[in-house]
Each structure stands twice: as C-alpha cells, then as structure tokens.
Measured scan of single mutants.
Amino acid sequence: MDPFLVLLHSVSSSLSSSELTELKFLCLGRVGKRKLERVQSGLDLFSMLLEQNDLEPGHTELLRELLASLRRHDLLRRVDDFEAGA
C-alpha cells in the first residue's frame, strides 16, 4: 500500500470528532460546503484534498498547517517520520 495513504489513514484514525469538525471548518475555503457536509472521517476529507491536489506525498504543507492548528504535535511527528523515510 502507498506509504502516504498509510500515513493519512493513521492520522485520520487518531482524530476525534471535534477535531474533524475543526478540520472541516478550516478547509471551507478549499472544499465546497456541500462536499464537506458529506465528510464522515478524516480520510474522507483527505481524499477530497488529494483529488484537488492539495495533498501529495511531496506536498504536506497543508496537512502540517491543519495538524498544527489542532495542536496535534504527535501527528506532526508522524508526518516528519514519513518525510524522513520517503
């Protein structure tokens, strides 16, 4: 399986429902409101961002910004580990 997708799945499974709600709010300018209403998990949101090329294995800035906004430094370390091994 693609290591970047494994990372996104790992991050998604670590998010609380309130954190997902916050991420959806933060992505309002990037993803349409109707699409965001269908998001049920972090993976749903990340999939939309992947489709729009806002997220890519070599383009993790948005993911970092979102996780920093949540103050999830543990998840930021996972992104660091991914990039160190990528």
Rank of each mutant, 00 (worst) to 15 (best):
L70K: 01
L49D: 03
D80R: 07
T21P: 03
F4L: 05
Q52K: 09
F4I: 03
F25S: 15
D54E: 13
R38V: 12
G42N: 04
V11N: 00
S17T: 12
V31T: 05
S13L: 09
R78I: 09
R78Y: 08
E22S: 10
R34I: 13
L8T: 01
R78K: 09
D44F: 00
E37A: 13
P57K: 11
D2M: 04
R78P: 03
S14I: 02
L5I: 13
S13G: 07
L5W: 09
G29M: 07
L67E: 00
A68Y: 14
R34V: 13
H9C: 11
L28M: 14
N53M: 06
G32L: 05
S47Y: 12
L20G: 02
S14E: 14
E61A: 13
V39S: 04
Q40H: 14
R30W: 07
A86H: 11
G85C: 10
E61M: 10
H59L: 04
L63C: 04
L20R: 02
L66W: 06
R38N: 09
H73E: 12
E65C: 10
F25G: 14
L26H: 08
L63Q: 02
K35T: 06
K24P: 00
S14T: 05
R64F: 04
E19D: 07
N53L: 06
E83N: 09
D80Q: 09
L62W: 08
E51L: 08
L7D: 02
H9N: 15
L8C: 04
H73N: 12
L5V: 10
D54W: 09
S10P: 01
L76P: 01
R64E: 03
P57L: 09
Q52S: 11
L7H: 00
L75N: 00
F82G: 03
R30E: 04
M1V: 07
Q52T: 13
N53D: 13
L63K: 00
T60Y: 07
D74H: 00
H73Q: 12
F82T: 02
C27T: 08
L45Q: 02
L50I: 15
L36E: 02
L28C: 13
F46C: 03
E61N: 11
L49M: 08
L23E: 01
F46Y: 04
G29L: 05
L63P: 02
R34G: 13
A84N: 13
L76R: 04
L20F: 05
H9L: 06
F82N: 00
